[in-house]
Structures are given as structure tokens and as C-alpha cells.
């Protein structure tokens, strides 16, 4: 009994150490660095790096740009996945079809980004096909879909990587939460397909998936390889911007990189708190209406 208790206690300590230690250590180190308390050129406590970072328009622009890309990518992926699950319910019962959706998940982000670059860039596959078919006069006329100002290439890659996971995830929620039965019941009670979708399916789905969606927004927001290959210097996503700062020759920029990383962390935390509360209210109001 005692042995079991000690073993469980030990496992808890290991778990906490694995979860908290790297996070807290990293956070503390970044905090100390950003206040000038550690690092190669440390000159003691200063707010200089924070003042510069907080007043850096491009840092805020990067956070905003990253957030926009992440939210649009996750939004599009969610709706694609939901549409697939709703419209291809019977196909998902076939094993081969269900397994097929796992294929895109095997691709590393870099490979997917390179694929998008090869396919959608101005000199890529679609550009050449469009030119050959006479849709455009010259290859350069093809719309800018990679390394563009709106991050279309990054969003395209993110969607390609995220939607297969969402499809599997939403399908599992449908099965586990008996959503098909809820839908049938709702219609039996006189609700139209549209009413059933907005008042029953979506709120139940949202309750179960909001945390995962939020984690994916954070995941896409912090992606590095994809914006590096498909993004621009301006606007630039936050992670490549932080890495740029941290790896410059000017060592004075390193504390600013850490301050920027902490600023980004703060925005993410605020985002989680605000959206989780407001979306619950949104659906409550919708079902009250």
C-alpha cells in the first residue's frame, strides 16, 4: 500500500517536473533576460528592452498578423472538416475512406510548405498550367499566392495540415456525443435542418472542441518553418520575427527578442481567457433567441 502510494506520488512529481520545470525555467530565463538581469551584455535591471519592444509597431503588427493567419486558417479548416463530416457521413463508415484522411497528417510542415510553394507560386505548377491553357498572358500575371502580403500561402499550408486532423476529431465527437441522434431528435421535434445545425449540432460541437480549436490557433500562430518558406519580411509572423531578433549579430537585440516572446505569450493567454468566455455567451444568446 505504502509502496503504491510512493510510486503514485513519484509519478506525480515527475509529471509536474516535466510540465512545469521547462516552462517555468524558460519563462524565468526570458523574463530575466528581458529585464537585463542575465545574458552576455547584461548591465543590470532595466526597462529599456521592454519599452522598446512595447513601442515597436512591427512587433505588434507581427502578433496581429500571426493571430489573423491562425484564426482564418483554423476557421476555414473547421468548416471544411465539418462540411466533410456532415456530407460524407456514410463514406466515413468505410475503413479505406476513414484511413485516407490520415495521409496528409504524415507530411512534415516543411514538406507541405514546399509543396504549396511548388504548386501555387508564380513559377509553380498552377501558374504554368494557367499560362499553357491561356488563362493568363504571362507567367508573372498569376496571382501572388505565396510570399504574399496577406499570408495566403501560409494559410493554405496551415489549412492543408490542420483540416485532416479536425475531420478525424469532429467525426469522433459526432460518434462519441451521439450527434446524429441529437440531430434526428431535433428534427423529429419539428426543427429544420438549419435550426438543428445552429441550435444543436454546432453548440454541442463547440463545447467539445473549443479547447482544441484554441490550441490549434496557438499552434498555427507560433509556426516557424511555414512562414519562413512562404512568408515575407513585412508583414512577418511573430515566431520568425523573434528568431530573427535573437539570432542577429547585434547581441543587444537578444533581450528584445525575449521581451517580444513574453509579449506574445501574454497575448495568447489573454486570447484564451477572453474567447472561451465570450463564445459561451454567444451560443447561449443564440439558443435563447
Amino acid at each position: 500500500m505504502n509502496l503504491k502510494f510512493t510510486y503514485t506520488k513519484l509519478l506525480r512529481v515527475i509529471f509536474l517536473m516535466l510540465i512545469l520545470l521547462p516552462t517555468l525555467a524558460g519563462f524565468t530565463y526570458a523574463l530575466l533576460y528581458s529585464f537585463g538581469l542575465t545574458g552576455l551584455l547584461s548591465e543590470g535591471f532595466t526597462l529599456k528592452h521592454w519599452t522598446e519592444t512595447l513601442s515597436d509597431f512591427y512587433a505588434w503588427k507581427s502578433i496581429g498578423f500571426s493571430l489573423m493567419i491562425a484564426m482564418i486558417s483554423v476557421f476555414i479548416s473547421f468548416w471544411i472538416s465539418l462540411f466533410l463530416v456532415l456530407k460524407l457521413t456514410k463514406d466515413f463508415q468505410k475503413k479505406w475512406f476513414h484511413r485516407l484522411i490520415f495521409v496528409p497528417l504524415c507530411f512534415p510542415a516543411t514538406v507541405m510548405a514546399l509543396y504549396v510553394l511548388q504548386t501555387f507560386s508564380k513559377s509553380g505548377f498552377f501558374s504554368r498550367i494557367s499560362y499553357q491553357l491561356g488563362f493568363i498572358d504571362q507567367i508573372e500575371s498569376f496571382p501572388e499566392l505565396t510570399n504574399d502580403a496577406y499570408g495566403i500561402g501560409i494559410m493554405l499550408t496551415s489549412v492543408l495540415m490542420v483540416f485532416p486532423f479536425f475531420t478525424i476529431y469532429i467525426k469522433n465527437i459526432f460518434d462519441a456525443e451521439k450527434l446524429n441522434e441529437y440531430q434526428q431528435l431535433s428534427q423529429s421535434l419539428g426543427a429544420s435542418s438549419l435550426q438543428t445545425f445552429w441550435k444543436i449540432s454546432l453548440p454541442i460541437l463547440w463545447r467539445k472542441s473549443k479547447l482544441t480549436l484554441m490550441l490549434y490557433i496557438i499552434f498555427v500562430m507560433g509556426s516557424y518553418e511555414v512562414p519562413l518558406l512562404l512568408g515575407r519580411q513585412n508583414p512577418q509572423m511573430i515566431t520568425p520575427r523573434i528568431v530573427d531578433k535573437a539570432q542577429r549579430f547585434n547581441l543587444q537585440d537578444i533581450p528584445q527578442a525575449y521581451a517580444m516572446a513574453l509579449m506574445y505569450l501574454g497575448v495568447v493567454l489573454i486570447l484564451i481567457l477572453v474567447t472561451s468566455a465570450s463564445f459561451v455567451q454567444f451560443f447561449k444568446r443564440k439558443s435563447d433567441a
Binding site: Y182, L185, S188, L189, G190, A191, F283
Partner: peptide, 28 residues
């Protein structure tokens, strides 16, 4: 289904989990 005026009750109560008792009853 929604135009038949026939209600099918499943073996399980299947109350809509995000709605309270009042809203569940008021749904139809």
C-alpha cells in the same frame, strides 16, 4: 422528418446538453 408531426423518443432521454430544462422543453 420535421414536417411529419410525429415525435420519436429514443431509449435514452437525449436532453440537449447545452440547454437547461426550460430550454429543452421549449425547443420544439
Amino acid at each position: 422528418v420535421n414536417q411529419r408531426q410525429i415525435v420519436y423518443l429514443f431509449q435514452e432521454a437525449l436532453l440537449f446538453p447545452h440547454l437547461n430544462v426550460f430550454d429543452n422543453i421549449a425547443f420544439g
